[in-house]
Structure formats: C-alpha cells, structure tokens
Design a protein around this nucleic acid. Structure first.
Lengths: 200, 200
DNA sequence: GTCTATAGGCAGATAGAC
DNA sequence: GTCTATCTGCCTATAGAC
C-alpha cells in the first residue's frame, strides 16, 4: 500500500542515489563500484541492479537529479536575491556548500572524465554547463547595465570565465582539503567583477 | 653497449611514458590500463611491468617528468619574455598547447581523481600546483609594481585564482572539444588582469 | 627485455529462489 | 525488492622460459 508509506523516510532508490552521488563527487564515475554503494547501504549488488540496471543508468539518474536541484537553486536565487551582486555571491555559495561536504561539483568531476563517460551522461554534463552559462551571462549583463558589476567584452565570455574560475577553484582546493582556499579564491574572483563602491 | 645507442631513437621507457601520459591526460589515471599502453606500443603487459613494476610507479614517473618539463618551460619564459604581461601570455599558451593535443593538464586531471590516487602521486600533484602559484604570484607582483598588471589584494590570492581559472577553462573546454573556447576564456581572464593601455 | 602463461581479485551484470 | 549464486571479462601483478 504505497499510499501508507511514511513520506519522511527516504526511498531505497533515493538512498542509493545519495550514496552514489557522493561517491561520484569524491572519487569520480570510474572511481566507485556497485559494491561500494551496496556495501554502504547494506544491500547486495543485485539489489542495486534492480533499481538501476546498468551503471550508466545510475549515472544518468544522478546527473539528472543533481541538475534539477541546481536549477531549482538558481530559481530560488532569482526569486530572493536583492541585486545582481548578491546573486553571484549566492551562486558561489552553492559551490561553497558542495566544498563543505568535501566534494567536487558533480559535473565538474564528470567533465574531467568526459572521454570515458557513457554518451547520455556526457550530454547531460554539457547541458548543465550550458544552462549555467546562460544564467550567469544574464546576471552579468543585468549587473553591468545596473552599474553594480564591471567587466570587459561579451557577457557570455565573462560567464564562461566565471564558471571556469569557480570549477577550477574547486578542483584546486580539494587536494588541499581546504574550503578556505576555495572561499579566498572565490572572493578574489567576485571582487574583480564587483564595481568599486564609488561607482555604485 | 649503451654508448652506441642512437640518441635520436626514443627508448622503450620513454615511449611507454609518452603513451601513458596521454592516456592519463585524456582518460584519467583510473581510466586506462596496462593493456591499453602495451597494446598501443605493441608489447605485452609483462614488458610494461618490467619497466614500471606497479601502476603507481608508472604514475609517479609520468607526473615527475611532466612537472620537470613544465618547470623548464617556466624558466624558459623567465629567460625570454620581455615583460610580465608577455610572461602570463606565454604561461597561458603552455596550457593552450596542451588543449591543442586534446588533453587536460596532467595535474588538473589528477586533481579531480585526488582521493583515489596513490599518496606519492597526490603529493607530486600538490607540489606542482604550489610551484605554479609561487611562479605566478611572482609575475603578478612584479607586473603590478611595474604598472603593467592590475588586481586587488594579495598576489598569492590572485595567483591561485588565475591558476584555478586556467585549469577550470581547460576542464570546461574539453567536453566541447573546443580549443577556441579555452582561448576566448583565457583571453578574457588575462584581459581583466592587464592594466588599461592608458595606465602603461 | 620481451615473451607465454597464469594467478587472484574485482568489475558489471544476470538467473532464479524467496 | 532483496537475496544467493554465478558468469564473464578485465584488472594488476608475478613466475619463469627465451
């Protein structure tokens, strides 16, 4: 009787995704196995295969969920941030939260492994980046128009540079196990985009 | 009689390193096998094990050689670049060359896999980044003093941000198979550091 | 230095009982 | 949905002949 399920209890599928997602973000898609996930959850590999027939299916589900959550977070920022500078800070904070969990951005990690990924996963990763660039470019464009942000050239290029800077900051902070390193780098990068106080 | 060897012919060890290095830069340390290298070279796996007893040894040798070459390139830049702006451009061009080979920076790739790496390899990766930050910070500091470069805050922070921006640009350009994307992002990033013509 | 042969383990995946 | 059992294949690594 599904209607009687406690909605506060995570489904097995969800718990599998949670564990596998963390493993991808820390060890990479090629760095974990069904045995890792099953062992941590306390079930057998066969049980995992019941929920996700192949590892590629599990990977797809992870990226889809991660992307959906991220897009929701972007909408949340659009709805609540008071100006474009605050939007960028909130955006950077999304990644800071990821780092606090001692993880890399899921799609940043998968980007490194791109050549070895099942095609559907690779396509989803590219789509994630595309969406982020569009969102960032919009914020940057508006901010420049409003006089709160400063940068040269096309907003698209600035958006790609900013996304790259944040992904790169995560990539480099992890070997040092150092969230502060990410924070300092991010503050520097955002500071370079923020118009001098006198100009606002 | 080793003295009679043709020095123009690459040694087997060197060819093994060349192939394995490319595989790590494209597929990651966890994304290639001894069979891949041996097959491409036309020898057996056992032969590979004669030269590099364990995969960790092969990995170490790859990083050591890569780092040594990179440090030589930095010395070359110091010796030949006419000013600090030219040094940064030459530095970025090192990575552009990597991208033209459809590769990721070796250490950037290994940074993603950090948690799964044998400890000595991880230590070498960290050392690579440390050295790069020191070099970049020096260039940035000198450039700011000379009035050819502009940035706020500590040169160390700016150096970490720049290294992260370049590594991130590589990470994001590869899924698009797009060197131009890397070039555009890099130009944007360096442009933000370059003092306006009027100030020089 | 390179080979054949093989060990021992783990990977992803499936069949079928419960 | 989860289990046991198993398959097949690839992985890293080694032994020993040439």
């Amino acid at each position: 009787m599904p209607a009687a399920q406690k909605t506060t209890t995570e489904s097995t599928t969800t718990r599998m995704l949670d564990i596998a997602e963390r493993l991808v973000q820390t060890r990479g898609f090629n760095g974990f196995s069904y045995a890792d996930v099953a062992g941590e959850l306390g079930v057998t590999k066969a049980s995992l295969h019941y929920h996700f027939a192949a590892k590629a299916d599990l990977g797809e589900a992870i990226v889809e969920r991660y992307s959906a959550r991220f897009m929701q977070a972007l909408e949340q920022i659009d709805a609540s941030a008071r100006d474009d500078v605050a939007k960028l800070e909130a955006y950077a904070n999304l990644y800071a939260e990821v780092m606090r969990g001692e993880r890399m951005c899921l799609c940043g990690m998968l980007a490194a492994e791109f050549e070895t990924l099942p095609a559907p996963i690779g396509a989803s990763v590219v789509s994630f980046f595309d969406t982020n660039v569009v969102w960032l470019a919009h914020v940057l464009k508006d901010g420049r128009a409003a006089g709160t942000l400063t940068f040269d050239g096309a907003a698209d290029d600035a958006a790609r540079a900013l996304l790259g800077a944040l992904q790169g900051a995560m990539l480099l902070a992890r070997p040092y196990g150092d969230v502060a390193r990410f924070q300092a780098t991010t503050a520097h990068t955002l500071g370079a985009l923020t118009a001098p106080a006198g100009a606002r």
